[in-house]
Nucleic acid binder design. Structure first.
Lengths: 160, 160
DNA sequence: TATTGTTATACTCTATAACTATA
DNA sequence: TATAGTTATAGAGTATAACAATA
């Protein structure tokens, strides 16, 4: 087990994929621990934030942005609509399409969730300095941007 | 992408948690796409690599290292044992305990999976330069190390 | 009585395939 | 015929609670 000396990173747990899996699992559980039952799940928040950044999207486009199957988008949107956080509207130009948009309540809920999300993130990344967290966020953001279709760039946002 | 100029990261998709969730989902699906049915799942490989690094562990310790419920560890190990990749052994010192260890076949399988895993990783991180991937791996590794119990340090390995 | 692993069970997440309504 | 969304369904993944064996 000396391959690190040769400049070769050690092959197992240092690989990116297992680490991401692990962090995602811990993060999800942390979410669940903090949240009361019936609260918005991570998926919901991610969907809201995509809508916030991109503005109204078709369900298909939303699914692509979330890397989610269209049939999953249906249920996700049902839940968001029930809570009045998002709304579906037929596209007059092509009546097969739904245009999904964030409601005012949805915007508010999204903003309100920030503090808690930041707290969980602080927990999860406790071992990293603030500068390193920024770095990590940037790297992940660019990696995600690279794995998306060009016209659906999640890494690009409208935050001036 | 100009919000960085103000030093204020944009609040939504730039947050680490959603990005990790997203990457984990894409990575898992990529795994599934490449693998034939019946192949080892990400979980299996992660478990094998933990055993590879730490040496034999109790099921409980393995569960902690994977951030997995003990009841899940049972099923995971059943599958690994069926394929002869790992073995359970009663701890003579405390017969309630199982000592889980990697078999020679398990070691071999783990090594064999590396090439494929690297390929998937290359796909997923196509937008990052080699140096940035190393940086990302390092940051994630340290974040994970920080979120584990001190005596179960996944981020630290014996590769030295 | 407390702890390790196990079983039974249920709930969440996700994908596939068949369906509908529009185009 | 092809596309957007929907429904039904099935399979992973994970957690909780009750249980057995051992301490």
């Amino acid at each position: 087990m000396t391959e690190a000396q040769a400049g070769q990173p050690c092959r197992q747990a240092r690989q990116v994929l297992p680490l991401i899996e692990y962090l995602a699992r811990v993060a999800r559980r942390t979410y669940d621990t903090y949240q009361e039952p019936g609260c918005l799940r991570p998926r919901h928040l991610i969907a809201l934030s995509v809508l916030h950044e991109h503005g109204p999207l078709s369900q298909q486009a939303l699914g692509e942005a979330l890397s989610l199957d269209p049939s999953n988008v249906v249920g996700l949107l049902n839940e968001l609509e029930e809570r009045g956080l998002a709304a579906r509207q037929r596209d007059p130009a092509d009546r097969r399409r739904h245009i999904v948009s964030l409601s005012a309540v949805g915007e508010r809920e999204l903003a309100a969730s920030d503090a808690e999300r930041a707290r969980i993130e602080d927990d999860l990344l406790a071992a990293l300095s603030p500068a390193e967290r920024v770095q990590l966020r940037d790297l992940l953001s660019r990696a995600v941007g690279g794995s998306l279709p060009a016209d659906r760039d999640l890494g690009q946002d409208s935050c001036a």
